[in-house]
Design a protein around this nucleic acid. Structure first.
Lengths: 197, 197, 197, 197
DNA sequence: TATGAATGAGGCTTCATTCAT
DNA sequence: AATGAATGAAGCCTCATTCAT
């Protein structure tokens, strides 16, 4: 059934690359990008130190790979639900729901030693996700779902709420209720902002 | 008792401590906390390396001292303006204004590497400030300034918005405008939440 | 036994060995023996790194093989011309000429880093060549070409001159002129030594 | 008796520097400059690895210090006796004598593990000494002690003889006899060269 | 036998920290 | 207390070598 020899080799290579990426993701989350070291990444891996350099030249290159990469499966999903939204309410409520559900799922899988790790707002995925949120807000304005307003500021407000409420969700708050609350807060606020502006 | 030698010594001690703190602030600002080294701090000082350890045990301890010493001098001010508020609008708007103005004043001394200087939401002062915010929200509800709602969630939302909008302010957004925007967003949201709940 | 497969295999083996040797010669010439690495040699080859170890145990072994294989093919020639000499003048002049010409031919393939490629006087071949020189000097004394003198010391003097003048030749001095000069110097010196002793 | 405190500190620093230089000299002699490592130098020392970098930035800087330095006490002595010479005979004989005596003295102090070390002709001192020899030969020609001839070639010949005969001396040959032999060889040779040219 | 990824020893250097003065 | 040289752990990276395929 197929050629096991060739595919095995390729598979192993791909697996090692993924192993390193996964370890790097965890390490960056745990201690931040700046203070993480290549050794920290290797140690979070069953691989030997030299092996790291078969795949990446430096910590920065891993960072790029995470950023550019297939890294956070949640981002495409977020884009998807936001693009599919037919109303402001749907835009926010679906977005928050997906995000909080993701946070909960990650939290379940996270080993105890990493529990302290909040969403680091300077992690590659988060920054990229932030940029995407703003793009989607602009899109929603263009599609007439939202009134015209300062989407940069709005994106920051949404992101901040999302990060902090995520902590509440991790502590046991209900995903749907929290998403509804955040949605209501935003919709009301945006209504007032539109009136104000 | 009245021994000039003793007071002279104390003065020198205090001066050295301040010298180190000032140097550390500059170094952290220039190269970020994570990549700064104790050596970097000492080099920015006329003191010898060993002297550092007469005052601080590590880079982290200097960091704590900077935070404790200057950074969250802001907390009492925040409590003060929130307690003095006579309306929901005043509660939020004064709070945001004081917070953003503080952030800007701190940032003025921080030319490069904004990455590193984000508010770490897990530092003890920040957590304490978070608890205070919730207490003050409860107080505002009791005083009739705010409708009865989930102040835990609201506090999280406010904190998140404040942290992220602080980044915008650091990047040049106007303090008053940003405070107004945040205030409007919250007031509108709270109105809707109150109606919803 | 006439099996074409076997001979094919042998051919390939021999070719790989030659490929590695040629690459090593080039690499040693370009960057010097000390700073060259096995990786450098492999990279100068279409072969895989593991293949290197089918042929040589280490960089040193390649070096030995280069020396043994090509470098001191010169020794038989030296013996030959010295044995054929019919006068002291011929003995020295032919010897120097052959040696310097050889050095030049080797050097032609050696553009950079002359430092490293000096004759190491403690390599086994050099020491063997040294012993042969002394034997030939003894032979020349026996044949009446040279007066009786301390051939051990004379061999050392000749070898030293040869090694150092070789550097001059590498730097562009003319082979014949240098050989003539060395010959004259030795003949004059030997004349005086004979008179002195 | 002076201030022991201050001088002790300075002395220690100077001593460490000398310790490192001495170790480096030995290491370079033993394994050559190119393949020696900073670690090799440190290991030849009772000092810690970091201490090396309090004194030198790299292996190259040690090399420079050796070259520029007070390194080889023999070189000034050689220059001295050559400059003081009043005849060609004296020039060579005193030079060889001083050199061979030095070699013997070094050989006595050299630990057994380093015994294999010949004079490395690419060591900093040797190269500098070579240049000085040529200068002094030019001076001797100018002073009329030697006929006009190719001093570059002559210097090479002398150096080669000196290095190889040094090995004989190390093996037990008498310093004076060897110096006399070398001197006679050169004087005879130079006489013939002068006649030839 | 050829391949090339994995391995981990080992080289270089910087740094936090100690300690004799 | 202040000093600054010494220390050695630890980070970075390359390399020789092994070994599964």
């Amino acid at each position: 059934m197929g050629d096991p020899k060739t595919s095995r080799r390729d598979l192993t290579k791909a697996q090692n690359r993924e192993t390193i990426l996964a370890a790097a993701r965890g390490v960056f989350a745990q201690m931040g990008f700046a203070s993480a070291t290549v050794r920290d990444i290797i140690r979070a891996t069953p691989l030997a130190s030299g092996t790291f350099y078969n795949y990446f030249k430096s910590k920065e290159e891993v960072y790029q790979a995470l950023r550019d990469g297939t890294a956070l499966a949640i981002r495409p999903r977020l884009r998807e639900v936001r693009l599919a939204a037919n109303s402001a309410e749907e835009f926010f409520s679906a977005g928050f729901r997906v995000f909080f559900a993701f946070v909960v799922s990650q939290h379940g899988e996270t080993p105890a030693s990493v529990q302290e790790s909040r969403f680091r707002m300077d992690s590659p995925e988060v920054l990229a996700g932030f940029a995407e949120l703003r793009e989607d807000l602009d899109g929603a304005v263009a599609r007439g779902l939202l009134p015209s307003l300062n989407t940069q500021m709005l994106a920051a407000s949404i992101a901040g709420m999302a990060f902090e409420l995520a902590e509440q969700v991790k502590s046991g708050a209900d995903v749907d209720e929290t998403a509804n609350l955040a949605t209501a807060l935003l919709l009301g606020g945006i209504g007032r902002l539109a009136g104000t502006a």
